[in-house]
Design a protein around this nucleic acid. Structure first.
Lengths: 184, 184
DNA sequence: CATCATGCGGAGCAACAGTTCCGCTTGTCA
DNA sequence: TGACAAGCGGAACTGTTGCTCCGCATGATG
């Protein structure tokens, strides 16, 4: 038996509402808030997702899928450093705009279930490898370090009115990660 | 009338227990946990501190007082860059060892009440000014940026077993913050 | 249109944390 | 040592949040 049409629709509504709610309020947004935004009852959420963590992971997985395109773009870039910097900057923006992503990614056990996220980490590792082989990226750093470094981006701003400071911090990090390369 | 001796002693016990509890469990350690460690009732905590936030700020202030010595040391260092790097590294270690510090420092309104913390920020600004005047520190960065940058240190480790990775991240940051200076 | 299982809504439950309250204890002082 | 108020302990209250349960609505099917 195929699932009922409204059930499919509601699952999408919940996922979209969760993405928005978690992006706005962080990972500790109440489930009731998600239900309100989805215009759906609590029971409906829990029929589609076993618990809150599963919902968070589903959101992470969905967003990771979008980010996967950036990995290919980075690998195709003629300059290994520019490719890495491009990916790093975009991930930083993603984290800066959505606090919940870091919180979820920290749930190590559960992220194993997020297929797209795993692919994103693996892809990032390839980008890093290429840059390190080219001698333009500091050694001793791997894909697992990226989320930790990007903490500078997702950390909420300390000085009000200046929300774009994280991009300066990313510049600092990239400066510190870069190596001159064999050509000087 | 002087306060009773046991009241003074208990206030110290609570403050010490809070420091330990928040360091271990972060800012969301339950008040009951603080009471347990202090071997004191809940009522005793609330007689000395109006609410949890006030207790957190008191801990921050106490620790900031200790850190103030580092500012003087940094200013007395003959090399402005080395002075800054020394202070930056020590603050990083402080944050890495005690997650709660960042969480508290983020309570902007309340930190105005933490005298030592204000002095620490002001002192850090002087260290930064000196390094920037000497041309060895990137411009466009001030004392308010330091806690945000140090997010790389307090962010809990992503890869288990490797708790010391934050020191690598601090190296990266310092590399990115440094400028060659007039002498080359 | 009738049937009925799939799916839905949202009140209610249990766990937990911050805070208050009050009867009892204990330090202080003469 | 006696009297008293300052101080104490911790049960209880309140609000919040994740999650469950069950009576009802509704889409699928013939």
């Amino acid at each position: 038996m195929a699932p009922r049409a409204d059930a499919v629709r509601n699952r999408e509504r919940v996922l979209a509402a969760a993405r928005a709610a978690f992006a706005d309020l962080g990972g500790d947004a109440p489930m009731e808030e998600v239900a309100r935004r989805a215009e759906v009852g609590m029971g409906t959420i829990y029929r589609h997702f076993p618990d809150k963590e599963a919902l968070l992971v589903a959101v992470l997985d969905q967003r990771s899928q979008v980010s996967l395109a950036w990995v290919d773009e980075a690998l195709e870039h003629p300059d290994p450093w520019e490719g890495f910097a491009l990916l790093f900057g975009r991930l930083a923006q993603e984290f800066a705009e959505d606090r919940s992503l870091v919180e979820v990614a920290r749930l190590r056990r559960r992220t194993d279930e997020a297929e797209s996220y795993r692919q994103l980490v693996a892809g990032t590792q390839r980008v890093i490898d290429r840059a390190q082989r080219a001698g333009v990226l500091r050694l001793g750093i791997d894909a697992d370090d990226v989320p930790a470094l990007l903490a500078v981006a997702w950390e909420p701003p300390w000085v009000e009115d200046e929300q774009e400071r994280w991009s300066t911090y990313v510049e600092v990090l990239l400066d510190g990660l870069r190596r001159p390369g064999p050509g000087g």
